[in-house]
C-alpha cells in the first residue's frame, strides 16, 4: 500500500511542479508552434491522469477488499470466465480515448508541420541551420550574413529553418519556440517556427553526436523586426566576410564561441540537394557571394552561375576528405 501512496504522492508532486511558479521550458512556450505542443501535452496529461487514477483506484480497492488476511480460511474464490459486457467496456473506452487522442495528434501534427498561422501575408524568414561537430552555423540568405552558435530572429514573423548537417545526424531544437527536427547530411529538412515575444531562449542539438555533444548548444534571441534590422545592419558594417578557407576551418571538429560573418557559405558550399517533404524543393542556391555587401537581397530561386558554384563545392568536398 505504501507504494501506491508513494506513487500518488509523486504524481501530485509532479503536477505541482509542472504547474508551479517556475514553468518547465517545454511548458513555457514563446511561439505558436510550441504553444500548440504545450496544449497537446497538457491535454494528454489530463487524459492520462484520468486513466492512471482509474487503474490506481481499482487496484487499491481490490487489494484492500480481497486481501487474503481478511478472508475466511474456508473461502474458495469462484471460477469466473470473461464477461462480454465488462470486456466490451474495457475495450471500448480505451478505443474512444485513443480515437480522441488520434484526432488531436493528427491535427496538431499538421499544424506544427505547416507555416504558422496568424502573421498575415508576411513571408517567412528563411534561415539555413547546419550543424558540424559540435556547433551550429546559421545562414541568413535574405540578409546575406552568417552566424555561429547564436541565432537572432525577429518576432511576429514566421521562421523557416532549412536543416542539414556536416557530420552525424543532429536534431535542431529550441524548446520554447517548438519541437525539434533532424539535420542530416544528405538532405534538407524544414522546420517551421515563430517567436511571439522577445527574449532569450535555449537552443541545442538534442541528438547524440559524439564526444562534444553535451556542449552542442546555441543561444536564440528573439527581438522586434526593427531591432533585428538594426542588428543586420551592424553586422554588415562590422563583421568580416566568410571565406571558403574560413568556413573549412570552422567545420573542423571542436567547439567555438559565437561568431558573425557577412556572406554565407551557401554560395561556395551549397546545402545537399535532396529534400524531405516537398516544401521549398529545388535548389535554393543563393546568388550573393560572400564578399558582396548588398542589402536586402531577395533570395532568388535560381542562380545564373550555378556551374561555378558546383565546381567550387566539388573542390570543397574534396578538400574536406
Amino acid at each position: 500500500m505504501k507504494l501506491k501512496w508513494a506513487i500518488l504522492g509523486a504524481l501530485f508532486t509532479l503536477t505541482a511542479v509542472l504547474t508551479g511558479c517556475e514553468p518547465l521550458t517545454v511548458l513555457d512556450p514563446k511561439g505558436p508552434q510550441a504553444q500548440t505542443q504545450a496544449d497537446v501535452i497538457w491535454i494528454s496529461i489530463a487524459i492520462m491522469a484520468f486513466i492512471v487514477i482509474t487503474v490506481f483506484v481499482m487496484l487499491v480497492y481490490i487489494l484492500i477488499k480481497y486481501r487474503g488476511s481478511k478472508q475466511a480460511d474456508s473461502y474458495e474464490p469462484p471460477h469466473i470466465e470473461g464477461n462480454k459486457i465488462v470486456e466490451s467496456i474495457v475495450v471500448g473506452i480505451p478505443i474512444i480515448i485513443v480515437a480522441v487522442l488520434s484526432i488531436i495528434s493528427v491535427q496538431s501534427t499538421y499544424d506544427v508541420e505547416a507555416k504558422p498561422e496568424g502573421y498575415g501575408d508576411k513571408e517567412p524568414l528563411v534561415v539555413y541551420a547546419s550543424s558540424s561537430d559540435w556547433k551550429w552555423h546559421f545562414s541568413y540568405p535574405e540578409q546575406d550574413i552568417e552566424t555561429v552558435n547564436y541565432l537572432y530572429v525577429p518576432t511576429d514573423r514566421p521562421l523557416e529553418f532549412k536543416l542539414y548537417s556536416y557530420g552525424p545526424i543532429t536534431s535542431f531544437w529550441i524548446p520554447q519556440l517548438g519541437g525539434q527536427k533532424y539535420a542530416m547530411s544528405d538532405m534538407i529538412t524544414t522546420l517551421h517556427l515563430a517567436a511571439d515575444v522577445p527574449g532569450e531562449f535555449m537552443g541545442r542539438n538534442s541528438n547524440f553526436s559524439g564526444e562534444g555533444f553535451a556542449e552542442n548548444t546555441f543561444n536564440v534571441t528573439a527581438m522586434p523586426q526593427q531591432e533585428f534590422d538594426d542588428w543586420v545592419k551592424e553586422v554588415k558594417q562590422t563583421a568580416k566576410p566568410l571565406t571558403e578557407e574560413k568556413f573549412d576551418e570552422l567545420l573542423e571538429p571542436g567547439h567555438l564561441g559565437q561568431l558573425t560573418f557577412t556572406g554565407t557559405h551557401l554560395g561556395f558550399m551549397p546545402p545537399p540537394k535532396g529534400h524531405h517533404e516537398g516544401h521549398g524543393a529545388g535548389g535554393e542556391d543563393h546568388s550573393e557571394h560572400s564578399s558582396h555587401e548588398s542589402e536586402s537581397s531577395e533570395h532568388s530561386e535560381h542562380d545564373n552561375n550555378n556551374n561555378e558554384h558546383n565546381h567550387e563545392s566539388d573542390e570543397a568536398a574534396s578538400h574536406n576528405e
Binding site: Q37, V40, S44, S105
Partner: peptide
C-alpha cells in the same frame, strides 16, 4: 501503467517533437 500512458503521450507526433531525445 504510468510508463505506458507516457508512451501514449510520446506517440502523439506533434508533442513527440518536444519529448524526443530528452
Amino acid at each position: 501503467t504510468i510508463g505506458g500512458v507516457t508512451g501514449v503521450m510520446l506517440g502523439m507526433a506533434s508533442a513527440d517533437y518536444q519529448y524526443h531525445n530528452t
